[in-house]
Amino acid sequence: MFPEGSDKDSREIEKRTLIREIINFFSLTGFIYGPLDERLKIREAFEEQLKKPVPHYRTWIENNLLGCLGGLSFVLFILLLISGILLLMYYRPTTGEAYQSVVEISNVVTLGWLVRGVHFWAGNLMVITVTLHLLKVLITGAYKPPRDFNWLTGVILFLLTLLFAFSGYLLPWSQISYWATTIGTETFGTVPFVGESLKSFIRGGPDVSQITLTRFFALHVVILPLIAFLFLGLHFAMIRRQGISEPL
């Protein structure tokens, strides 16, 4: 009915939906967004993103419990990112002050107990949700081609999550974190031939010391997040490209 390429006409006959109403509300009131949209077509791109196909799960368990584990992990990751940045504003990564600064965050800083609690619990829960996500993909066979490469990035993200948890555990420099890291790094010593040198390479010395704390801190707040961003980007791009695998 309308000639091709006439955007204005086709937009007028778009169906009104709740999502579109919300987008319209922001595009009308946003004085920065409004003029930008003509140039960047943000609205179009945003709507495109909202047209994400969702598999037709048949049961409540599939839909509400198993289908959300990946997204839940990502929500926890965002929570960890925000609360982690906030914790960085007070944390001091030295053997002399690390424990004291953590106690200060919990007991002295306004709402510090909340920020640290969110970081602690989101970190613990993320290990659980990522593990369940991995098991669900494994058991339902969703890792099969063409999604085999995405399964690979997922396994890498699982290992990254465990490394996040392991390195973050040392940072309060309490008795339990010190000895847990001593035991955790001690296990590398059992690798044949290279074990001892591998152990001291990870610790940055013969035993868990300031260098270990510095290295684990760098790992936890810089190195691992950068790698995680890379693999999260790949993971999500492939999911959007290939779609979520449909149940049989």
Partner: peptide
Amino acid sequence: GGSLIAFFGNLLWEVGKYLSPPPEL
């Protein structure tokens, strides 16, 4: 719009309270 501004404004306010160093420190 008002609710959203109130919500995010309050969130920012609480973050600001967290970031301002307490007198003890």
